[in-house]
Structure formats: structure tokens, C-alpha cells
């Protein structure tokens, strides 16, 4: 039976947003594993994980579409709907960039030079950090929208700050790595290959930051 009061309450799209963010965390774990396998030259296993990430990405895409398609006009949310859609877009792009990076690596199996390996691992670790904060960020936001307490809002703000700081650090390392690529590699193809790779990895953190900026805008008062 439908009751007027119950039909007033619409299933919060934030729950699905949480599912989407959880999928991303799953992917970052695999991403790290794939990079390691690639560096060890285990390309076959690398390809398997890449396919697995692609599968997860399409699942996350379905969640994203589900959120967008089931949010009709006439739903009143505690946040601006436009900002909310922007947030999902950015969160989804994080996943796209992870996938793109793995695809880039799989287009042509080029082993990373010994002198750059550590830097690449460091960069990957750094970009994963802000991304892994996204599920927590969404969860904190859900709690805040449920209670509207100042404290809960401050937690969201502080996570946004953390994400921003990790991104800045990743940016710095990305620039250093590019410099090193230009200084150590002479072959034009390899320069293009590794510069592009560095940019792909770096953009993962960029989109995580964009997402957190959107979240910050959503909780603005």
C-alpha cells in the first residue's frame, strides 16, 4: 500500500554513490597490483587484471547511470542536483583514468627503465591515497546530511583537505618524474610513451581532487 507520507520519501541517491565509491576502492587495489605485475614483466597476469578492472569499471558505470537515470525532476535533495551530478562525473572519471592507464600500458608492453621504477611506484602510491579516501568522504557526507551537525560537516571538510593535500603532493612528484624522463630518456617514442603514462597516472589524483572540490561545494552553507 502507498501512504502519502511514505511516498514523500525518495530513496537517497547517496547510497548508490557510496556503492560507486566502493567500486573505485576495489579498483585501486587491483591497479596497484597490475602496475607491480607490469614492472615484473608478468604481462599475461597484468592483462588479466586489466580486464578485471575493465569489468569493474563497467559495473561502476552501470551504478552511475542508475543514479542519473533515476533522479527525476521533482526530487528535492539537500544538495544542488547539478553539483551532485558533477560529483558523480568526477568520481567516475577517476575510474576511467585508472582504466585508461592500464590500457595505455597494455597497448605496447614497454618495460619501465630501472632508474624510473621507484618514481613510478611512488607516484602510483601517491595517487591511490586520495582516491582511497573517496568512499570515506561519501560516507561522512551521508552522515552529515542525516544529522546536519557541525562536527560531522567538519569531518567532511577535513577529508576534502586531506584529498587536496595528497593530490598536491602527487602533482609535485609527477612534475619531478616528467623532468627525469626528459633528462634520462633520449628516444622520442619512449619519451612520449612515459610522459603520457605519467600524465594518465597523475590525472587519477586530479579527478579525485575535483570530486572532493564538488563535495566541498555541496556542503557549503
Amino acid at each position: 500500500m502507498r501512504w502519502l507520507l511514505t511516498s514523500l520519501f525518495f530513496k537517497s541517491p547517496f547510497e548508490n554513490l557510496q556503492r560507486h565509491a566502493d567500486k573505485i576502492k576495489e579498483c585501486t587495489h587491483m591497479f596497484k597490483k597490475a602496475i607491480n605485475l607490469h614492472m615484473q614483466g608478468k604481462y599475461e597476469e597484468f592483462e588479466n587484471i586489466k580486464d578485471e578492472v575493465a569489468r569493474l569499471e563497467s559495473e561502476a558505470d552501470a551504478i552511475k547511470r542508475n543514479i542519473r537515470n533515476h533522479l527525476p525532476r521533482g526530487i528535492l535533495m539537500p544538495v544542488d542536483k547539478f553539483q551532485f551530478f558533477q560529483y558523480i562525473r568526477e568520481q567516475d572519471k577517476v575510474l576511467d583514468e585508472i582504466e585508461e592507464t592500464l590500457f595505455w600500458l597494455s597497448f605496447k608492453h614497454v618495460s619501465i627503465p630501472e632508474g624510473l621504477k621507484d618514481e613510478f611506484v611512488h607516484l602510483v602510491d601517491l595517487v591511490i591515497k586520495p582516491v582511497n579516501l573517496l568512499p570515506e568522504l561519501v560516507n561522512q557526507a551521508i552522515v552529515y546530511f542525516r544529522t546536519n551537525y557541525k562536527d560531522h560537516r567538519n569531518r567532511v571538510k577535513s577529508t576534502c583537505r586531506d584529498i587536496r593535500q595528497w593530490e598536491r603532493e602527487a602533482d609535485f612528484v609527477e612534475r619531478e618524474l616528467k623532468l627525469k624522463i626528459f633528462n634520462t630518456i633520449k628516444d622520442a617514442f619512449l619519451i612520449f610513451y612515459f610522459i603520457r603514462l605519467t600524465e594518465y597516472i597523475g590525472s587519477i589524483a586530479d579527478h579525485a581532487e575535483n570530486a572532493s572540490d564538488m563535495m566541498r561545494a555541496m556542503i557549503a552553507r
Binding site: 514523500l8 520519501f9 525518495f10 530513496k11 521533482g74 526530487i75 528535492l76 539537500p78
Partner: peptide, 20 residues
């Protein structure tokens, strides 16, 4: 129902279905 919608407009509720 009106009262709950009022709280929703004060950003004090989850998603409300105004189609009601």
C-alpha cells in the same frame, strides 16, 4: 506532508519526492 517538505527545503531531509 507540507511540514516535512518545509524541512526538506531547509536542507534538513534526505531526498524528498515532490511529485507527491
Amino acid at each position: 506532508v507540507g511540514s516535512v517538505i518545509g524541512i526538506g527545503f531547509a536542507r534538513g531531509a534526505g531526498a524528498l519526492d515532490l511529485r507527491v
